[in-house]
Lab assay of single mutants.
Amino acid sequence: TTVKVNGTKYKFDTPEEAQKFAKKAADKYNLKVVVDGDDLRVE
């Protein structure tokens, strides 16, 4: 599972880890998590 934040992709072994990271990033930058198929985007 990958998470894309500000054009940078981060790869995670499990969707749970990816979800946690995406949520933290979204909170930090005051953005929202967008599900894109198997991957997540923070925008």
Rank of each mutant, 00 (worst) to 15 (best):
D36T: 05
K32T: 14
R41I: 15
K28N: 07
Q19Y: 15
T8W: 12
D36Q: 06
V3P: 00
A26I: 03
K23F: 10
K9C: 14
D36R: 04
A18P: 00
Q19R: 12
A25C: 13
D13E: 11
K11Q: 12
L31M: 14
P15E: 07
V5L: 13
E17G: 05
V42T: 04
L31H: 07
Q19C: 12
T14L: 04
A18F: 01
P15D: 04
D39R: 04
D36S: 07
D39Y: 11
D38K: 10
D13H: 09
A25T: 14
D27W: 09
V34F: 13
D27N: 08
E17L: 08
T1L: 10
G37N: 06
G7K: 06
V35S: 08
K32R: 11
E16Q: 10
D38G: 10
V5Q: 01
K11D: 08
Y10L: 04
K32L: 12
A25Y: 15
T2R: 03
P15Y: 14
V34H: 08
K4V: 15
R41N: 09
T1M: 09
L31G: 15
V33D: 02
A18Q: 01
F21I: 01
V3E: 01
A26L: 03
K28H: 12
A18L: 01
A22S: 02
F21E: 03
K4W: 15
N6L: 15
T1N: 07
E16Y: 07
F12G: 00
V5M: 11
V33S: 01
V42S: 02
N6S: 05
T1W: 14
Y29C: 07
V35T: 09
T8H: 13
K9V: 15
V3I: 03
G7T: 04
T1A: 06
A22L: 04
A18G: 02
V42E: 03
K24E: 15
V42R: 02
V3S: 00
D39F: 11
R41C: 10
D36M: 07
A26V: 03
A18N: 00
F12W: 01
E43Q: 09
D13W: 05
K20H: 11
A25N: 07
Y10W: 07
D39W: 09
K20F: 09
D36N: 05
L31A: 14
K20D: 14
F21T: 02
N6A: 08
K24A: 15
L31E: 05
V33E: 02
E43S: 09
E17Q: 11
V34N: 05
Y29H: 10
E43L: 07
R41G: 05
L31S: 13
F21P: 01
V42I: 10
N30M: 07
D36H: 06
T1G: 04
N30K: 09
Y10V: 04
R41P: 03
N30E: 07
K4Q: 13
K28T: 08
Y10M: 04
A26N: 02
L40Y: 09
T2Q: 05
K28S: 07
N6F: 15
L40V: 05
A26Q: 04
A25Q: 14
E17R: 04
R41D: 04
K23E: 12
V33R: 00
L31P: 03
E16K: 06
R41T: 12
V34Q: 08
D39A: 09
V3N: 01
V3R: 00
D27P: 02
K4R: 13
Q19A: 12
R41Y: 10
K24N: 13
K23P: 01
V35M: 11
L31C: 05
A22K: 00
L31F: 09
K11L: 12
V42M: 06
Q19F: 15
T14D: 08
D36W: 07
T8Q: 13
F12I: 01
E17S: 06
K20M: 13
P15T: 09
V35W: 13
E17C: 08
K23N: 10
Q19T: 08
V5I: 14
A25E: 14
E16D: 09
V35F: 13
E16C: 05
V35Q: 11
V5Y: 09
A22H: 00
R41F: 09
A22V: 03
K20E: 15
R41L: 15
N6D: 07
K32V: 14
K24Y: 14
G7P: 00
T1S: 07
K9N: 11
T14S: 10
D27F: 08
Q19N: 07
K24C: 15
E16T: 07
K20G: 07
L40R: 03
D13T: 09
N6Y: 11
F21R: 00
T14V: 03
G37H: 05
V5C: 02
V35D: 06
D38T: 11
L31Y: 10
K11S: 12
K9P: 10
Y10F: 11
A22C: 04
E17M: 08
A25G: 02
E17W: 01
T1I: 12
E17F: 02
K24R: 12
P15V: 11
N30G: 15
K4C: 14
K28A: 11
D27Y: 09
K9E: 14
K9H: 12
V34P: 01
T8D: 06
V34L: 09
T2K: 03
N30S: 08
K28Y: 14
V5D: 00
K11I: 14
Q19G: 06
V33L: 06
V33H: 01
G7V: 02
K23G: 06
T1C: 09
K24W: 15
K23T: 09
A18H: 00
A22P: 01
N30L: 06
K28V: 08
Y29G: 07
A18T: 01
P15A: 11
K20Y: 11
K28L: 13
V35N: 08
Q19I: 15
K11W: 14
A22Y: 02
D36F: 06
L40Q: 02
L31K: 07
G37L: 04
G37I: 04
D13G: 10
T2L: 07
F21Y: 06
G37T: 05
V34C: 08
T8M: 13
F12D: 00
K4M: 15
V33Q: 02
D38Y: 09
V33Y: 04
V33K: 00
K11Y: 15
D39T: 14
A18W: 01
D36G: 03
A25P: 01
G37F: 04
A25I: 15
K24I: 13
D13I: 06
G7I: 02
D13R: 12
K11C: 11
A25D: 03
V3Q: 00
D39S: 12
D39V: 15
D27I: 10
N6I: 06
G7A: 04
D38P: 12
D38L: 11
V3A: 01
P15M: 13
A18I: 00
D36A: 06
V42Y: 04
D27S: 10
K28R: 11
Y29N: 07
K20T: 12
V5G: 01
D38I: 08
T14I: 04
E43K: 06
T2A: 06
T14P: 00
V35G: 06
T2S: 07
D38A: 10
D27R: 09
L40P: 03
E43M: 09
V42F: 06
G7R: 05
K32Q: 13
G37V: 04
F12E: 01
V34A: 06
N6T: 03
D27H: 10
F12L: 03
K9G: 07
V3C: 01
A26C: 08
G37A: 05
V33G: 01
D39K: 05
T2E: 05
K24D: 15
E17Y: 02
P15R: 12
K9W: 14
V3F: 00
K9Y: 14
D13C: 10
V33T: 02
A25H: 13
G7F: 04
F12T: 00
T8E: 09
A26W: 03
T14N: 09
Y29E: 06
N6P: 01
K24S: 13
K20Q: 13
G37S: 04
A26H: 02
T1Q: 06
V33P: 02
V42L: 15
T1P: 05
E43T: 09
N30I: 04
Y10D: 01
K4S: 15
N6V: 06
K32M: 12
A22R: 00
D38R: 08
D38E: 12
E43D: 11
A22N: 00
E16H: 07
D39L: 14
V42C: 12
A22G: 01
D39Q: 10
Y10C: 06
E17N: 06
Y29R: 05
D39E: 15
K9S: 14
D39I: 15
K32G: 07
D36C: 12
T2M: 08
D13S: 11
T2I: 12
K32Y: 10
D36K: 05
K23C: 09
G7C: 11
K32C: 11
V5P: 00
E43P: 03
N30V: 03
R41S: 12
N30R: 07
D38N: 12
L40D: 03
P15H: 09
T8N: 11
Y10A: 00
L31N: 05
K23D: 10
K28C: 14
E43I: 11
A26F: 02
D13Q: 11
D27T: 09
D13V: 07
K20L: 13
F21S: 01
E16M: 08
K23A: 11
D13A: 13
